[in-house]
Amino acid sequence: MLVVGLLLVVAVGLAAAATLTWWLTRIIEADNPPVGRLIEAGPARIHLVDLAPETPPGTGAGTGAEPPAVLLLHGANVHHADMRLALGERLSRRLRVIVPDRPGQGFSGEGGPVVSDPGHQVALIRTAVEKVGAKRLVVVGHSLGGLIALRYALDEPGTVAGLVLINPTTHPRPGGLPWFQRVAEVMFGRPLIWTVLLPASLPMMDRMVARLFRPEPPVKDYAARTGLAVGLTPRRFRNSMTEYSDLRNHLVAVAPRYPDITVPTVVVVAEADPIVPPALHGEVLAKVLPHGRVVRLPGAGHMAHHRHAEAIAAEIERLAGLPLG
């Protein structure tokens, strides 16, 4: 009877936690609604924000043609607002900027069970980009979004005018994932994702933000302004965990193809990034790119696109062919 009683208590507790998670998810989504367009992209709808330039952009890359649009691809556990607020609004003064929620994040659908596959994500994003009429792109990716940007250049070379990669995830770690990530994959299985993860994580939001930005201080009100809690809701967090668990296999498969990328590429490495160490990723990538250039940010952490936005935006504008100004 004691065992039965304990099981009943656990079941009731999990049911209560699941109800609380459902309620919190509804509140978080209402506080951070889709602000862009929902584009049908085959098996999924892609949510994207399309920012028109405030002033005529002139011409790009000395061709006499309109400059390319900028496609901003966010990293893991966040959605489009991270890149829009860091770079999108700044760049849209002079360039067209397209900022999607990557498949499975924000208000974009998964498009099937292979949401972690970079090629699948590129296909969905590319369809959405075509439907809003953008042809040539400078593709900018942060962290895991850097991997998607690299795959975009490999899969859609005719549409990419250049790449800017900010602390990109590019190569498998020697020896596999750190032990704490392997433990997290086991601990954050489906039952916990749909029950206790969200209510347990919200009180620790400030600590999470500090870890993202370290060793630099976070920008003010980062979590609230970017809707960081959206990435902790069950569906999005489940997709993030799938990306993490499948990441090594995707990196092993794509890394040998990097020398095939022939477009101008700027690799921005934050030298103090503890999350995606440049010595294992960005610095290694730059050595194999035919037209790669490294921009190093001494003392910068993983969220360099927020703390060093002006310097990074200048690199993007330069690659788009705009005169400095």
Results as ranks from 00 to 15, higher is better:
Gly5Met: 11
Gly5Asn: 04
Leu14Asp: 06
Trp23Asn: 14
Leu24Pro: 00
Arg26Ile: 08
Ala30Phe: 07
Asp31Phe: 05
Pro33Ile: 05
Val35Glu: 15
Thr55Phe: 09
Thr63Glu: 11
Pro67Leu: 01
Pro68Arg: 04
Val70Pro: 05
Gly88Thr: 10
Glu89Leu: 14
Leu91Asp: 04
Arg93Asn: 01
Pro100Met: 10
Gly106Met: 03
Pro118Thr: 01
Pro118Gln: 00
Lys131Ser: 13
Val132Gln: 04
Val132Arg: 00
Arg136Gln: 15
Val140Pro: 11
Gly146Thr: 06
Ala149Cys: 08
Ala153Tyr: 07
Gly158Asp: 09
Gly162Leu: 03
Asn167Val: 10
His171Ser: 13
Pro178Gly: 07
Ile193Asn: 12
Thr195Trp: 08
Leu198Phe: 02
Pro199Val: 02
Ala200Tyr: 09
Pro218Gly: 06
Asp221Arg: 13
Tyr222Gly: 10
Ala224Glu: 15
Leu228Arg: 11
Val230Met: 15
Thr233Gly: 05
Arg236His: 05
Tyr244Cys: 14
Pro256His: 03
Arg257Lys: 13
Pro259Thr: 05
Asp260Tyr: 04
Val267Trp: 08
Asp273His: 10
Leu289Phe: 07
Val294His: 00
Val294Ala: 03
Val295Arg: 12
Pro298Phe: 08
His302Asn: 06
Ala313Arg: 09
Ala313Ser: 12
Leu319Thr: 11
Gly321Met: 02
Gly325Asp: 15
